[in-house]
């Protein structure tokens, strides 16, 4: 059975110093019990992820902490070890190298470390890894663009997006309806607008 008291202790422990560590851990919105959590990490300074806040979905299996937690990026990230499609993470400590002595906080910190030190030799996303190895500048630009677009989305209001798209030359009415259609995803809206 899931060790609830440990999870409660971890929740308290993790949020004690979250302004220093840059990671937070909360209950997932609408979760009925402690098995579904939500974590955030801030993008490490000096990386293309700087300034972004990345949301991570955390599912605790019943064997936790003796089995590793299941973690997945909700926020889209451009990174060799994180799927650009679904946010799946390739990190050894979340798989066979998990140890019960590790905690959710240490796991989140490891993810943060992963953001600053990608391991393209063991990629989750082959396309990103290829780009990382062959064309670093483009990789950095793309990763930064994704950070700007997705990891800072909360701060960018819908009006700013509308304005941006209108400046590109699309009619405002169309921009608004398209944005609405894709739930405010600027990139998808742009794609739709271009194809229509």
């Amino acid at each position: 059975m899931l060790d609830l008291s440990r999870v409660q202790k971890e929740l308290v422990e993790c949020n004690k110093d979250s302004d220093i560590s840059g990671v937070t851990l909360t209950l997932h919105a609408g979760a009925a019990d402690l098995t579904h959590l939500a974590g955030t990490i801030t993008g490490p300074l000096g990386t293309p992820y700087e300034g972004g806040t990345f949301h991570i979905d955390i599912q605790l299996p019943s064997g936790y902490p003796f089995e590793p937690p299941k973690m997945q990026f909700i926020t889209k990230v451009w990174h060799p070890n994180i799927s650009s499609q679904n946010g799946a993470i390739c990190l050894d400590i979340l798989k066979d190298q998990w140890s019960p002595a590790l905690t959710l906080k240490t796991a989140l910190l490891s993810l943060q470390a992963l953001l600053s030190a990608p391991e393209p030799g063991d990629p989750q996303d082959a396309v990103v890894a290829q780009q990382y190895l062959r064309d670093q500048p483009t990789f950095v630009v793309t990763a930064r663009y994704w950070t700007e677009t997705f990891a800072k989305r909360a701060s960018v209001g819908i009006e700013e997006k509308v304005q941006k798209l209108v400046e590109m030359g699309f009619p405002e009415g169309m921009v608004r309806s398209t944005l609405e259609l894709v739930n405010g995803d600027e990139n998808m809206a742009l794609e739709k607008l271009c194809s229509s």
């Binding site: 064997g63 003796f66 089995e67 400590i93 190298q97 140890s99 019960p100 002595a101 590790l102």
Partner: peptide
């Protein structure tokens, strides 16, 4: 128990990280 059920009886490692 988790390791035995996982079929890893022959190599149950210590719980400490990296041990």
């Amino acid at each position: 128990i988790v390791k035995i059920n996982d079929g890893q009886s022959r190599r149950i490692r210590c719980m400490a990280p990296k041990c």
